[in-house]
Simulated assay, not measured.
Amino acid sequence: MTDTSVPATALEDIRRVACVGAGVIGGGWVAHFLGRGYEVTAWDPAPDAEARLRRLVDAAWPALEQLGLAPGASADRLTVTSTLEEAVARAQFVQESAPEKLGLKRELLARLDAATPSGVVIASSTSGYPMTDMQTDAVSPGRLIVGHPFNPPYLIPLVEVVGGDRTDPEAVRWAARFYEAAGKSVITMDREVPGFIANRLQEALWREALHMVAGGEATVRDIDRSITEGPGLRWAIMGPMLTFALAGGEGGMAHMLDHFGPSLKSPWTRLEAPELDKALYDAVVTGCDDAADGRTIADLVAERDRGVIAVLRATGRLPGSGAE
């Protein structure tokens, strides 16, 4: 197998997508692709994978209906196969979503490369590993790219696309166009960076939150409310950079940097990871239980989905939902 025909299929001819790994992320991808009208084959080694996957798709379908189903979209277009090879045999695009273990990723991507028809792009949902580190065992590494989604993939539009050192640049460009055609909002990264873009920003916030819980400076409920009732409202409209530019008034970012630049050296944040000892572990788990206030995980998923859809609709990011 060679990379001479990467990618081999025109975007308008894509009908069949394979999803390998059917956990929370992989299952979310399955739901997304089904909602966009594709035929989906899925494989996961867990013995109860099919039952779990179909429950996830059923739970996601009301949100997909609100987002707007593509013509022909149906949960009946899902086939769960007994082998990886069967799942990718006729695939025109492959999305891998295995657990975050580098050895497993290398082995699985090599298997997918060997089993997938020539010229078909294979994407990994990895949330942290560079493709350069994962494509080492593949015979045809040129078609391997990262397509990093956000949970749940059927609801959150963003996907970050980047190749590795041995990836064909055309595979990256093709994948970005495919994801856009499949309803995603795409960032095509110029170079690899561990954790990509959004996860690095999330990680900074997450670490500081853990420090505050560990130090008794804030509860889990306080931390979540500080975002949902504060900067999170602004970030749904524009990101932190333009938000800070507005803090400079008519002078924009230049005035903001002149005014607040010296405070960058103030010890406000502690970006080193705190020690996740039992006390911190228990505090975070108990704090989340308290913040849930009796709501089950299923309740919270439904609440999150309704809320995100409302934000997308209010900001004009759903088809036909122009913001008013």
Rank of each mutant, 00 (worst) to 15 (best):
T4F: 13
S5N: 13
S5G: 13
L11R: 06
I14S: 02
R15D: 10
R16V: 13
G21R: 01
G27R: 05
A31I: 00
L34N: 12
E39F: 08
T41K: 10
W43M: 08
D44P: 10
R54F: 02
D58S: 15
P62S: 01
G68H: 02
P71E: 00
S74C: 05
L78A: 04
V80T: 11
V80L: 14
S82H: 15
T83S: 09
P99I: 00
E100S: 05
K105A: 06
A110V: 05
V120P: 04
I122M: 02
P130D: 09
M131K: 05
T132A: 12
T132P: 00
D137F: 06
S140Y: 06
L144W: 06
I145E: 01
P153M: 07
V162T: 02
G164R: 01
R166M: 06
A176F: 02
A181P: 03
M189H: 10
E192N: 03
E203G: 15
W206E: 11
V213C: 00
A214E: 00
T219E: 14
I223W: 03
T228M: 09
E229T: 13
P231V: 12
L233S: 12
A236W: 08
P240S: 08
F244A: 14
A245P: 14
L246Q: 10
G248F: 06
G252W: 04
A254R: 12
D258Q: 15
G261M: 09
G261Y: 10
S266A: 13
R270I: 01
P274N: 08
P274K: 14
E275Q: 07
T286I: 12
D289A: 10
A291T: 08
D293H: 12
G294A: 06
R295Y: 09
A298Q: 13
E303H: 14
G316E: 05
L318M: 04
E324I: 05
